[in-house]
Structures are given as structure tokens and as C-alpha cells.
Design a binder for these strands. Sequence first.
RNA 1: GGAGAGGUGGCCGAGUAGGUCGAAGGCAGCCGCCUGCUAAGCGGUUGUGGGGGUAAAACUUCACCCAGGGUUCGAAUCCCUGCCUCUCCGCCA
Length: 485
Amino acid sequence: MIDIKLLRENPEKIIDALQKRGVYGSPKNSEEITAMPYKQLEGMLDIEQLLKLEGERRTRIKEADELKNRRNVVSEEIGKLKQKKQDAAGLIAEMKGVSEKIKELDERLKKIEEDENNFLLIIPNIPHESVPVGKDEAENIKTRKWGEPGQFDFPPLNHWDIGEMLGIIDFDRAAKIAGARFSLMKGMGARLERALMNFMLDTNTSKGYKEIFPPILVNKESMTGTGQLPKFESELFKIGFTKDTIDFLKTKFITVQKNEYETMIDGKKKKEWIHIEAELNRMLGNELYLIPTAEVPVTNIHRDEILNEADLPIYYTAYTPCFRREAGSYGKDTRGLIRQHQFNKVEIVKFVRPENSYEELEKLTRDAEDILQRLGLPYRVITLCTGDMGFSSAKTYDIEVWLPGQDRYREISSCSNFEDFQARRANIRFRREGKKGTEFVHTLNGSSLAIGRTVVAILENYQQKDGSVLIPEALRPYMGVELIK
RNA sequence: GGAGAGGUGGCCGAGUAGGUCGAAGGCAGCCGCCUGCUAAGCGGUUGUGGGGGUAAAACUUCACCCAGGGUUCGAAUCCCUGCCUCUCCGCCA
């Protein structure tokens, strides 16, 4: 979330950021924004509208606070009068009116704050000044390269062919069990997943990352904290009813907010009441989401906490399965392990002081690269441009691994500094030694690495002419074999 | 799933026949004093967020005693709903 004070004082900075990301402008439905800011999800962000909301918010606060002050003062007087057994009927009558007025104002204020907050939640982060300005992935910058793509004296195969030939990946049965974009790993394939997970976790913990094994179902607050919600709900798997279903039911029942029905209790007919809208909201509030990345539960470990300066930096690493709907990528990567609804990943997450978060981003990226180096997989590092960066990120490096079967580099890790964007949403603060007040921490994370894609890289880079696959040396202790054949 | 108990400031812990409670007391922390040093002792001080105010402070005001509603002139205190924790019974990996 962006800082509302920054918006107030330097709106041009926010506008500039949105322009660089290509999402600034007046939406067509501007008259609807106040009521439903999320209607802008696919469109442009009209900052002037937001400023108007903010101005109104402050006016209303002033009005309500003055009345509340009056109520507090007079109520105390009434108390004193009553103790002295004196008459206070006049004051009480007056306060009755004041309280009603306050209630009215508070309701309006609440609505304004909801609208404003909903708006703030869909504004992306401000890119760091070092991020190249560009409109899409074509303008990303190749930052560095490690290793050279290997030369093969035979035509290298795709990983799915290798996997099926070796009998270690079974896509057909995975489709039978679950559907498209799922995989079934068998024998040395399953073993390879497990080996990579342990190898990555061991490597990270040896560098001081604390190992975490978090819940993989999380609530709405956690998803909002890291930025997946409200904007990217369609990317997530959800347990229970979806928002669409609830919204549909609401439109059906909205005219009958209170329903009476008969029920049998102890053999007697009894009338009961139910608030349908309240019930639906409650159902929606109880939903859980499958995590798309360990970033979500791990970053939310410290949600609503005030950390000590001495606790920072905090380094975590976590293995989790990850779940993604991959809506809107129907034609892409339909074969193989590249794009799955469920995949494994080892993640690293950092909570740091603001002044060294960029230094920490470099270190974090190097730590992710180190895994690839130890596995002997050639890669390059890409600095994403403003138009290609994720919603929550201020700066992102993608690491792309060389895949001979596809004759190209493919993303295997994404390392980002979110600055205080997530910390503000998730309310993660720290207190400086000897200073009053609190500050938001900076959060960072990166994959180290996506395990499924690492399997792809190993199969394709280490394939042999006879169809077998050599195991990288660093992995042999975990695999127990040197070769899959 | 059934029965009961409870959720108060960094921690412990008062406060439930509603009124001056942001909240007694203790611990921890901070600042002084004292002491050769440490400890003990003495005095003072210490929450978060929003609004106004300021160059920044000072200052001022509102809100916050799990969350959301309600009753009331007024709620930590009363009522409803939800969430969480604990104990017992049942069930279960």
C-alpha cells in the first residue's frame, strides 16, 4: 500500500509511478469509483478521485471529533450532577440529539474510509529509481550471465520426453487424477523433487536463513497483506464459496435481508430469523485460500507486530507447495512441468531496516543464484522494467535458467524488494533503539528456487545421449545415485 | 461433535449492581539522585493509530481494554454475533 501522506503531499510522485507502470489515467466509469473502486481493476487509476476522497475523509473526521468532544465533556457533567442528585434532564435531552448526529457522521465516515481503503489497495507500488522505465518484457535489462549453455552432440530433448522415457514423470495419470497442469512424479523423479527441496533448504539454512514450515491455507487478511488480494483473486484457489458465488446469492436475496423461517425444535414448531446478507458475509469471511507462494504465510508471520531494531534483519526460508489457477494462460506451456497448478518451491523472505533493503536485495539475489551455481545450471539475471514488474514490487530481478530442450532461458526465480509496501498493508513495524514511535520494515523475497523448473533444468541440461540423466554433484548425496536411467 | 472457563497496556495482574479509567498495583525499560563498582534504595518517566497544529517540536483532540454490532446522555464494565485460547468428554490422522 502506498503512503496516503505521500499522496497528499506529493501526488505527482504517485502519478509519475503509475505512468511508468502504464496504469495512470481517468477510467471510463469514474462516477462509479466512489461506490466501487474495484471496478477499476482492469483499468486506469484516477488519483484525483482518491485525493477527493481523502479530503472528504478529513473534513468528516473534524466534524465528528468536535461533536464527540462535546459529548465526552457533557456526559461527564451529567455524571457529576447525578452524583449530587441534581437534575440533568435538559443536558440528557440535548445529548441524545448529539449522539444521533455522531452516529450519522460516523456511518458516512466509515463508508468513505472503506472506499478510500479499497482504492489504496489496488494501487501498485512505486518503482525504485534504479528500475528501467519500459512498457513490457521487451524492455527488461539483461544484467548478468553465469555459465554457458552446454553443447550437445545430439539434438537435446524436452524434459517431458526425457521424463516420460525414464518413467519418472507421468502426465497422463496426473490428468486422470486431478486434471490438466498437474504432474505425477515417480521413482527417481519423486526422489529428485525431495532431494532438491532438502538441498535448497540446507543451503539456505547454512547461510543463516531460519527454516519455516508454514500453513499453506491462509485467510484473506494474509493474502491482502502481501498484495495478492483484492486484485488477483482470480489467480487463487479458494476453499469454499467464491466471491462470485456469494455476490450472486446477494443479488438474489438482497431485497429480503431478513428472512423468517420455521424450524422444529424438540418437536415444536418455532420461528427463527436469519440475516441473509450477514450470513453470506460471514461465509465469505471464513474462506481460506491456497497459497500461490510461501511468501504469503511467511511474510505474514509478523503481521501486526512491532519488532525490535535488534531483531532485524530477519531471514527465513521455507519449502511449500504452491497453487495457482493460471487463469488467462490457456495456450501457454501446456506441456511439461513449466506451468502447473501445483508446484513445489523453496522461498527466502527477509525483514530488514529500510536503509539497507537494496543491499539486502542484492545479497538475496546472489543467494538464489548460488543454488543454480552449485547445481551447475547456466543462467542470466534480468532487471525487470517498470511495465513488467509485479504489483507489490519496487524492484525485481528475475533469474532465468538455460533450457536446452526449449533453446531458451526461462524464469526460475524472482527476487523482489517490496520496500514498505507489504509492511504497510500487513502492518509490520519496528522500533528504533532510543527513538520514539515506529517505522515500517522493508520486506523482500525470492525463490530459491522453484523446484519443478529446477527439475526441468536438470533433466534438460544434464541429459545424455543414451537418454539417461546425470545428477549434479551437489545433489548426489541427496539422490544416492549419480545417474537416472 | 458435546460441556464448561477465559480473552485488559512489553509482560504479570486489578477493575463486572455502567460515570472523572488509557485504565490501580507489580515487573521490565528509560531519565535523574545516591553509591568506589554492581546490587539495593529514592524521585520522575514510559502504548498505538487518526485529525488539528508546528520548520520540527511543544500543544490539542478523537479512537483503541480480542473483533463487529446493539442498549445508554455515558460501556473495559450490560446484551447479541463472530474469532481465538484453555479444561473435560466423545471422535480421529
